[in-house]
Amino acid sequence: MPNVAIPAEFENDPSAYVWTHYAPEIGAAAGGYSLAVYENSKLSMREMEAARMRTAQINGCALCLTMRADRDLPGHIERSGGDAGRAASIRDNTPPGEGFYSDVENWHEASAFSDRERLAIEFAERFGERPKALKTDEEFWTRMHSHFSDAEIVDMTFSIGSWMALGRLTHVLGLDDVCMPTMPQAAQN
């Protein structure tokens, strides 16, 4: 149940109503931020999905947990007015399978991840749960710099920041349970 009033005609997409009705200027900026992440990130789809899924798990956003880049991202980008041809899922033709997504929560023990994917998950986890300690962890930053350029680190930081903010907003306002069942249906249309 949403924590803000949603008219019946928006019950299948309450986020659209919330973003455009209650805070249209901020909603437009947030939508632009999200779109910029998906259209312009230089990270591979697997790296993005590793970090995005760990962020979704931390946020508790049901919609984010069910999203799959290969199935849902092109439709999301197009509905947001963007160009799906610019998406990470299009640039990197190796969509993760369901095993990948289910392994993210137990990434310490899972063997399915590359070193870069594992670091993306760790970065998302620490960014979401322990940002104060992350800032000064020299050992972590040495590992990050051994696998990612500064531009990729900033790219990943902006990406995780977007997922953290918008996933938490969606979850806290109770918009994720309402629209979760429509994500796969929207992807098929």
Rank of each mutant, 00 (worst) to 15 (best):
S159R: 04
D13S: 02
P2C: 09
Q57E: 14
P74C: 01
P14V: 02
M180D: 13
W107V: 13
K132W: 09
N93C: 09
V37F: 00
R71W: 13
E39I: 02
M1V: 12
M1K: 11
G99T: 13
C179K: 01
P181M: 06
E98D: 14
E9P: 07
W107I: 12
S114N: 11
L166M: 06
R126H: 08
E39V: 01
E9A: 04
D70N: 10
G161A: 04
V18F: 05
I58V: 11
K135F: 06
A112P: 12
G27L: 04
I26T: 15
P2R: 07
M144Y: 08
P7N: 10
L73H: 01
D176V: 00
W141A: 14
D176A: 02
V178I: 05
D115G: 10
A110C: 12
P96S: 10
P96N: 08
T136Y: 10
S15D: 12
I58S: 15
R86Q: 05
E25A: 14
P74S: 02
H147F: 07
I26C: 14
M45Y: 07
Y17G: 02
S89Q: 08
I58Q: 12
E39W: 00
R86I: 00
N189S: 13
F10Y: 13
F10Q: 09
Y101V: 13
E47S: 12
G81V: 04
A88S: 11
F140T: 03
P7R: 06
G81Y: 02
R91A: 09
I6V: 13
G81E: 08
A28M: 10
Y101R: 03
A51L: 05
E109C: 09
M180H: 06
P7F: 11
N12T: 07
I6A: 04
F113T: 14
P7D: 11
D103L: 13
N3D: 13
S80N: 03
K132I: 07
E117D: 10
S111Q: 14
L134H: 04
S114G: 08
R168K: 11
R168V: 05
M183G: 05
I153M: 03
E129S: 12
V18W: 03
A186S: 07
F10V: 06
Y38G: 09
M156S: 10
H21C: 10
N93E: 15
E138I: 10
D83T: 03
E105K: 09
F123M: 04
G161C: 06
A62N: 13
W163G: 07
E39F: 00
T55C: 05
N40A: 09
Y101C: 15
